[in-house]
Design a protein around this nucleic acid. Structure first.
Lengths: 249, 249
DNA sequence: TATCATATATTGGTCAGACCATTTTTGTTA
DNA sequence: TAACAAAAATGGTCTGACCAATATATGATA
């Protein structure tokens, strides 16, 4: 009577994987046959679990192409922000301000709660960030940066924080602007960012919550100032261009 | 690519039968084997359709007993992620933790940025909270509480923060639980909350950012502790009830 | 060597049939 | 008539096969 159905158990496991950030928005799942093997159930049972999750809006299926975690898990939160972002680019600074609150807290709790595996993941993501630097695609660098910060959020062990932060980073990535690009290419900036990321990582790995929170704040202050400088430089360049070609349209 | 899946077509047909009253709340469906024959599909496909409708809250299943239309048809699903949070009561404390970050910040910036109109709105909402207290519906009280905090978030003048906080409060209101109800009815709690809300409002209105942030934190720490106490009391009551009627099922 | 077309492999979708677990119904006995 | 046991019905799961759509690999051509 109260015996849980296997399909529901599997669905719950997969849901937990999404909730805890093991499966990320947009991520492709292994093939059904493989997943069924992995969970040690039959494929029709696995399919029933998947059907449940697609009905709940967590997964989408693609015949011949695979099953995916949906990109947007909290559209009521993120869709309006996307719209606001398009209309008002300065909302970027509002996001940064909120990041101060969220990432300060994430770093603090990560320093208190992270496991050895979390530490390893954080270090790997830091390394990936270094290796991505200078590549042809600033988006890849932004993505590596995001994944580093998300590793810290994962270590904080708070699923609500994790998903709110994931939503904000997705927002930033989707709308990455010209001046934001410059964060990664402006001389001297990378070295500074690298040091700040390293300080943040060290504080988390060494289990120093207050230091970690401060490191996160310092990092964001620097980003905010740098973006403002970049904006000013761009504005100056545009003004200079207008002096050069006053009648161009 | 756009070819509709048979299971989805069947689910849609059955859903229509429910919506149009052909199938009534509480009604038992024909057996799966009969339904599959009737719709001229295989039983696993029919089962996938049923799984979809159970995930959407329209059907419930009873091994050996049959499938039934649900008595109270659930409202249509909102965000998938928010739905998971609702199903997992322990995420309440994750939400509270994130509120520490966000509301501390909101209070801080509200104290720095609020206009005379903002101040007036905050005071009106505080007053509304007092007037709602003790009414028949704890949800109305929760709503007034929410609107007070949202007034502070509005005064912080950061649209991203406002939106994220609105999302979290919406989640709390939608999933208001029994023990959360007790926040407003447990002896002594309201007076404490009232004082804390007043301290928060005063710090904001007087333009004291650090004080405002601290007031927000104190308030949330108190809520968290009180909810934990309420949970423990409820657990004790349940245990006592089980001692009283040990063989009841 | 790069591009395009075709073949093959992979992956989700559906089916048939069998068996298991739980509940309901039916039949038998006291 | 009530209680119990057996049979039937019904949902749950599995195996294996085949179909439809997509992705990838291979071969041909410019």
């Amino acid at each position: 009577m109260n015996k849980p159905k296997i399909a529901d158990i599997i669905a719950h496991k997969m849901e937990s994987m999404i909730l805890e950030g093991v499966l990320k928005p947009g991520e492709k799942l292994p093939a059904e046959r493989k997943l069924a093997d992995k969970f040690e159930v039959s494929r029709p049972t696995l399919r029933e679990a998947i059907k449940k999750l697609t009905a709940k809006g967590l997964l989408r299926t693609h015949q011949g192409g695979g099953n995916y975690v949906c990109e947007s898990l909290a559209p009521s939160l993120t869709d309006p922000l996307l719209e606001i972002f398009r209309e008002r680019p300065n909302t970027r600074f509002d996001v940064l301000e909120v990041r101060h609150a969220l990432e300060g807290q994430a770093a603090y709790y990560a320093a208190m709660r992270c496991t050895e595996v979390d530490k390893q993941i954080i270090q790997e993501r830091y390394q990936a960030m270094l290796e991505t630097h200078g590549g042809p695609d600033p988006r890849a660098e932004a993505k590596a940066d995001t994944e580093f910060h998300m590793a810290i959020a994962e270590a904080a062990d708070n699923v609500v924080l994790l998903h709110v932060m994931r939503g904000l980073f997705t927002l930033l990535l989707d709308s990455i602007s010209f001046s934001h690009d410059k964060l990664y290419t402006k001389p001297g900036v990378f070295k500074k960012l690298k040091n700040q990321h390293h300080a943040l990582m060290t504080a988390v790995v060494d289990g120093e919550p207050d230091k970690a929170r401060q490191a996160a704040h310092d990092h964001l202050v620097y980003i905010e100032k740098t973006l403002q400088e970049i904006d000013k430089e761009e504005a100056r360049k545009e003004r200079a261009l207008r002096r050069l070609t006053p009648f161009a349209k």
